[in-house]
């Protein structure tokens, strides 16, 4: 009997058990809500990013960010737009900040390319709707995490995200992951499987080692791109992000929705 089948049978057993005693289940659920998920608890710290729109006008900078991220995380390159997966990409200013443009906004500003990625919201709607806690807000540092082992692929989070930051694996991504000559993927970051949702993870795997996210590093490496992206903790008063937010005019995406995005843009 295969591993999958065995765990599946076990899970079905649990499911039957769960259904058989609906009431205790509901109680357990409440207990989980009180202790387990900590939806309402403020994270003790919160990573944030500041994007400098002017420095990001340089196409090389943006391309370097996208390339570094997608390479680092083995993001597949799927040619069909309907199935395309992206963690960080360009969008036009008028679509990123629909409330900031009016009919007299100059066309070049309306169509200005802006880097977009997951906002790691303070009050993330995707986390609120997930039926399995496959996506959750990490208490220690405020990252909106994904557990690819647990995701059931219902795509409720994609309906809930007001930023279009999530992609679903409509097909097996492995065939579209870039590899070197020997067929080895370019990074050792696990790829995803078909039928799960994925998104930017603020480079949790790099933060663990005390490194900066891949896109930030890549932008800094491009001449003229130094400081295009700044990353840091909002809990540290002397961090670069806190300093920029205090000094410059910054905006974030669709603040009226109350999600509390943690990616800011210097206008």
């Amino acid at each position: 009997m295969s591993e999958d089948r065995r765990t599946f049978l076990k899970e079905v057993g649990f499911a039957a058990l769960g259904l058989g005693c609906g009431f205790p289940l509901v109680r357990a659920a409440f207990a989980e809500a009180q202790h387990g998920t900590n939806q309402d608890a403020e994270p003790s710290s919160q990573w944030a990013m500041v994007v400098d729109l002017e420095k990001c006008l340089n196409g090389e900078v943006r391309a370097a960010c996208v390339e570094a991220c997608h390479r680092e995380h083995n993001v597949p390159e799927i040619p069909e737009a309907d199935d395309e997966i992206a963690w960080i990409w360009d969008e036009e200013y008028k679509h990123v900040f629909p409330d900031q443009v009016h009919e007299h906004t100059p066309a070049e500003l309306q169509e200005m390319p802006v880097l977009v990625l997951c906002n790691h919201c303070t009050n993330p709607p995707c986390v609120r709707v997930c039926p399995t806690q496959a996506t959750w807000k990490r208490e220690s540092d405020g990252l909106v995490m994904m557990d690819q082992h647990r995701c059931i692929g219902c795509r409720y989070c994609m309906a809930a995200c007001p930023y279009g930051s999530r992609s679903f694996n409509w097909r097996d991504p492995r065939a579209y992951v870039r590899t070197d000559e020997s067929g080895q993927p370019l990074s050792d970051f696990p790829t995803r499987t078909k039928g799960v949702v994925e998104k930017c993870n603020f480079c949790a795997e790099r933060l663990r080692d005390g490194r900066q996210p891949a896109c930030v590093e890549a932008a800094n490496a491009v001449p003229g791109g130094e400081g295009a992206l700044t990353f840091g903790s909002l809990a540290e008063p002397d961090s670069d992000v806190v300093r920029i937010l205090g000094e410059k005019h910054t905006i974030s995406r669709r603040v009226n929705l109350g999600t509390g995005p943690n990616v800011y843009y210097v206008v």
Partner: peptide, 23 residues
Amino acid sequence: VDMGQPARVANIILHPSPNSVMF
């Protein structure tokens, strides 16, 4: 049939999430 990973459907019960309307 809409799920990407139907074999994991029991996760809804194994990890009950009262914050989710789907639960």
